[in-house]
Amino acid sequence: MKRPIDIDEELRMFDKPENIKRLLIIFFIASTVVILIDLVYHRHTVFAWEDYFGFYAVFGFVACVVLVIVSKYILRPLTMRKEEYYDD
């Protein structure tokens, strides 16, 4: 006999809201540290724009936002069909 699942009892490390909050805070701090390295260390670069403060960080952030926005608001309306689209 399978025991019915008790969600509250089964909550583990990554389900508890306070743990998620803690993880997020650590992550935000780490991100800040990573971008601040640019102040103290001069990266060796090939292109001029790579020298800007936080170039890679800003690029990564903007790229992902653009990616999601384009996918959600342009690609999905164009391509999304119901799951059985090809079956009938």
């Binding site: 990573v34 992902c64 999601v68 926005i69 999304m80 799951e83």
Partner: peptide, 30 residues
Amino acid sequence: ISQTQLLFFSALAFTLLLLGGIYPAEMRST
């Protein structure tokens, strides 16, 4: 350093978009 910055801030974008509810919900679709 540059790769770590790129990845951390990509992850940051994912996190913020997800928390902000902008991240496209998964849908059963073709």
